[in-house]
Simulated scan of single mutants.
Amino acid sequence: MPEGHSVHRIARQFARNFTGRPVQASSPQGRFAEGASVLNGRELMQSVAVGKQMFLEFEDAVWLRVHLGLYGAWDFAGEIIADPTIASANGRMGQTNQRGTDLPGDGEAIFDDAGENSLTSIGAPRRARVHVRMSEQTKGLADEGDEWPPPVVGQVRLRLLNETTCADLRGPTACVLQSTDEMLATIAKLGPDPLVGDPAEGEERFVTTVRRKPTPIALLLMDQAVVSGIGNVYRAEMLYRARLNPHTPGRDVPEEIVRELWRDWVRLLAIGVETGQMMTMDGLTGDAYRAAMASRDDRHWVYHRAGLPCRVCGTEIALEEIGARKLYWCPSCQR
């Protein structure tokens, strides 16, 4: 499932390419035809991400709520404007020289083997399905020339189009219109997100909630009412980085460890938004860094490493199911 960093990147992409401009909205698949007709011709006012949910405000206070779920993604085509705060000095879109997909001083981008850091398709990992005319990151299909708008490929729930950019939504769990009150009610049910509101206030909310719960910490980190945006990958990696047994009840986790979990989430989410990748190993340099940015298998401590030796102690990484999701952890380091 796309985790919080992906949703924030999507919201930023809409802010750069769609805000302040009217859209043509359609539902090629037909499952959102009525909603698309409401959005058609309206100006996009703002885009907001909270955890795993994104909200697009259109004129007349019409909100589109999208939850990508397990398989959803936004595919972008056309002229994609890169965020200058995450663009490298050599102008490559969506990269960063500081702690992202370029090594410091290295002009060649390192592309993730699953397309996780691609601007063209953000969400469930996949190779880009559409051509990006102004990007060096084109992957997947051959050049489609200047055909505009691009042809619909596969099952597209919603297409948003302006004169230069196209965004196709595929496979979402939720795609619904809301009023302002409904949008605010949805957000009120979500836990704190480090990139929304005051992080210090978010920390206090998180600590207070976790410290009163008898629920295992591994389940609490995945509960979007406790904290927003953490999914299976970040959950496993954060617990390992804290050397915390995933079965420990929240109320039994020392307060200083709960605070460190929040602060680690603040750090990891920022890196994920900047790079488009869930980089959870610190201190990598040279070939090790390049390998980690290119492949998921080289950038995590425990996730997806069941049966392999722990990178620190050599103990076999355990895999179990908790809350209907896979949990990876080290029984020795995380006693």
Rank of each mutant, 00 (worst) to 15 (best):
Leu44Met: 09
Ala82Leu: 00
Arg42Ile: 01
Glu116Ile: 11
Asp113Lys: 11
Ser47Val: 10
Glu59Trp: 01
Gln53Ser: 14
Ala82Val: 00
Ala109Ser: 13
Glu59Cys: 04
Gly72Met: 02
Glu57His: 07
Ala61Glu: 12
Val66Phe: 11
Asn117Leu: 12
Gly100Arg: 06
Leu119Gln: 09
Gln46Ser: 15
Gln53Lys: 11
Ser121His: 07
Arg133Gly: 15
Asp113Cys: 13
Arg65Ala: 14
Gly94Arg: 12
Asp106Gly: 00
Gly107Phe: 01
Ser118Lys: 04
Asn40Gln: 05
Arg133Met: 14
Val48Arg: 13
Glu43Pro: 00
Val66Ser: 09
Gly91Leu: 05
Asn117Cys: 09
Val62Ala: 11
Ile80Lys: 03
Pro104His: 04
Ser88Lys: 00
Ala114Gly: 12
Asp113Gly: 02
Ser88Ala: 10
Ala61Asp: 13
Ala128His: 04
Ile80Tyr: 08
Leu39Ile: 09
Val66Cys: 09
Ala109Gly: 12
Ser47His: 09
Phe55Ala: 10
Ile80Cys: 01
Ala114Met: 14
Ser121Gly: 10
Gly72Glu: 05
Thr120Gln: 14
Pro104Arg: 05
Gly78Asp: 07
Gly105Asn: 06
Leu64Tyr: 02
Arg129Cys: 15
Asp112Glu: 08
Met54Tyr: 08
Ala73Arg: 07
Trp74Met: 09
Ala49Phe: 04
Arg126Leu: 15
Ala73Ser: 12
Asp106Tyr: 02
Ser118Thr: 14
Arg127Ala: 13
Val50Ala: 10
Glu43Asn: 04
Pro104Thr: 06
Ser121Asn: 07
Ala89Asp: 03
Arg65Gly: 05
Gly123Ala: 13
Trp63Asp: 05
Ala73Met: 00
Met93Gly: 07
Leu44Lys: 04
Arg92Glu: 09
Asp112Thr: 04
Gly94Glu: 01
Arg126Pro: 15
Trp63Pro: 03
Leu64Asn: 08
Met93Tyr: 06
Ala49Arg: 00
Ala82Glu: 10
Trp74Lys: 05
Thr120Arg: 15
Asp102Pro: 00
Thr120Trp: 14
Thr96Asp: 15
Glu59His: 02
